[in-house]
């Protein structure tokens, strides 16, 4: 694949006036539109890059290869291929949720590509195991997969384009005609399994690139103990606790998220 193919495959969007690259990788559940409250804040100082994984948003869904994406390494390949296609160096990688681990895996493979990693709600292992508390039992994840099956294949309304009037924010109305977070259900189902059954704890020790762990309060998906675990096992990492609650501070508390990233980047 040449650079243009990679850019098309991931619907890579480049914005901003800076030269230093900031690459934003969306997490499980949504596409690059998730960054819309945070990424624009860095436009003046950075080259802001967002993209969709294959199967999400406006990516080329025909390029989905179950073999390539059978574990997170395939997604790390995507990140590295995007970096190569855009000839990026000194990248500041911002990854949410599962993409935090994708960024860690990519930066282990090609440390020279990356200057800093910003990990929002990272977890190397979601399922409890022995002493390790990931936050979930296997049965909980099975429950999630069932819920996804029902929402994707059963109830017609989910993820269908919603056209609505938005008198408060008219600038959003036109955009809403294209749905947010549109997903290929088969890909999403598979990605959920890959994500929630993954175990990347042993990989953490291999990262040499400096990283910031952004930990939310009351995060049901990546609880504080998991954030602490990541911080302890990533040499040269900083841990920053946010007042923001939940798992998506870049959606729910964009100002605080922007400020924390800015402060870390200096």
């Amino acid at each position: 694949m040449n650079a243009a193919d990679i850019i098309r495959r991931h619907h890579v969007v480049i914005d901003g006036r800076g030269t230093r690259a900031m690459l934003f990788a969306h997490g499980f559940g949504c596409d690059q539109s998730m960054w819309r409250f945070v990424a624009p804040a860095f436009r003046d100082d950075y080259k802001v890059i967002t993209f969709d994984y294959v199967g999400w948003g406006r990516s080329d869904r025909s390029q989905y290869d179950p073999e390539r994406y059978r574990d997170l390494d395939g997604y790390a390949d995507d990140v590295l291929e995007i970096c190569e296609a855009l000839e990026l160096r000194n990248v500041i990688f911002v990854g949410h949720s599962v993409s935090a681990m994708v960024g860690v895996l990519a930066a282990i493979r090609e440390p020279d590509r990356f200057a800093k990693l910003i990990l929002i709600g990272p977890s190397p292992r979601y399922i409890n195991e022995g002493e390790y508390v990931g936050g979930f039992e296997r049965a909980d994840i099975e429950g999630l997969l069932q819920m996804m099956d029902k929402n994707f294949l059963g109830w017609a309304g989910f993820l269908a384009p919603v056209v609505m009037k938005n008198p408060d924010r008219p600038e959003l109305t036109r955009e809403l005609e294209e749905s947010f977070c549109s997903t290929d259900p088969r890909v999403a189902r598979r990605f959920a399994e890959v994500t929630f059954f993954a175990d990347n704890r042993a990989d953490l020790a291999e990262l040499t690139v400096p990283a910031l762990v952004l930990q939310c309060a009351d995060d049901a998906i990546a609880p504080e103990r998991v954030g602490d675990f990541v911080h302890q096992h990533l040499a040269g990492s900083e841990l920053r606790r946010l007042a923001a609650t939940g798992h998506c501070p870049h959606v729910s508390h964009p100002e605080e998220t922007i400020a924390a990233i800015r402060e870390y980047l200096g």
Partner: peptide, 18 residues
């Protein structure tokens, strides 16, 4: 528990954005 993951990854982000 599965509902919490779905809420955080799908329900809330979509609700906030749409």
């Amino acid at each position: 528990p599965g509902g919490r993951v779905f809420y955080q990854t799908h329900f809330y982000p979509l609700l906030k954005m749409q």
